[in-house]
């Protein structure tokens, strides 16, 4: 009987995590869309909705802690729940990145200066698609996907560097655009960090299955300043 409760609870927690993931994915896409369409209202909606992401994260965390306290999960269950704790933290951080992008979108809503939006959209789509598949792999315990996803992060990084250079060239050519360009740098930085966090999620998937904690991408350091 207790075993059944634990299994059912773990399942429910996983479902809730997927729901949280979906909220986060949508937040990133909506934030970039708001930037694209220069829609301040849409940007504000993303900022407002971040609170739901935070609430959901705490609700899941609470559930996991109760399980720790009442069921004393062992071995694999313990690894799974510990990884789950880590995972919701990553998701909540990605939600914050989306909020950051939305803030820039709100700021730039009335700014006519062109933005390399097509490249930014592509980058966001890539990062969100990685996140989507990583969450799927987490639930399905799909090690192959978890091991192959971090390689895609390189493509996001590549795109990041391309846009970065383009923006810096724009700054050099027209110093009056520095303020605007700096905002856009924040946007692409946030998207790039999103993809990095997906790599962290993949590390957790490997951890659940094998118990090993490995760094899957050596370039994933918490650099807060862009490098080219």
């Amino acid at each position: 009987m207790p075993r059944l409760t634990l299994d059912r609870e773990i399942r429910l927690i996983q479902d809730e995590t997927l729901l949280l993931g979906s909220l986060v994915e949508q937040a990133v896409l909506n934030a970039v869309d708001a930037l694209k369409s220069r829609d301040a209202a849409a940007a504000r909606a993303v900022i407002r909705n971040d609170i739901f992401i935070n609430d959901k994260r705490f609700a899941i965390e609470n559930r996991i802690l109760i399980l720790f306290a009442t069921q004393s999960p062992m071995a694999r269950d313990l690894r799974l729940l510990a990884a789950e704790l880590e995972l919701i933290t990553e998701l909540e951080r990605i939600g914050d990145y989306a909020k950051g992008i939305a803030k820039v979108a709100e700021e730039l809503a009335n700014d006519e200066t062109p933005v390399p939006i097509r490249e930014i959209s592509t980058m966001a789509d890539m990062a969100v698609s990685m996140l989507h598949r990583a969450l799927g792999a987490f639930i399905a315990e799909d090690l192959d996907t978890a091991r192959s996803l971090p390689a895609e992060d390189d493509q996001v990084d590549e795109l990041y560097k391309t846009i970065y250079r383009k923006i810096v060239q724009g700054m050099i050519a027209d110093p009056s655009s520095i303020d605007h360009s700096n905002q856009i740098l924040w946007v692409i930085h946030n998207i790039e960090r999103t993809a990095d966090r997906v790599t962290n999620i993949c590390e957790r998937i490997v951890f659940i299955a094998t118990g090993e904690l490995l760094e899957m991408d050596s370039s994933d350091d918490e650099l807060e300043s862009p490098e080219s």
Partner: peptide
């Protein structure tokens, strides 16, 4: 949720 993967 595992299949449709979207909160809406």
């Amino acid at each position: 949720i595992e299949v449709i993967r979207h909160h809406a």
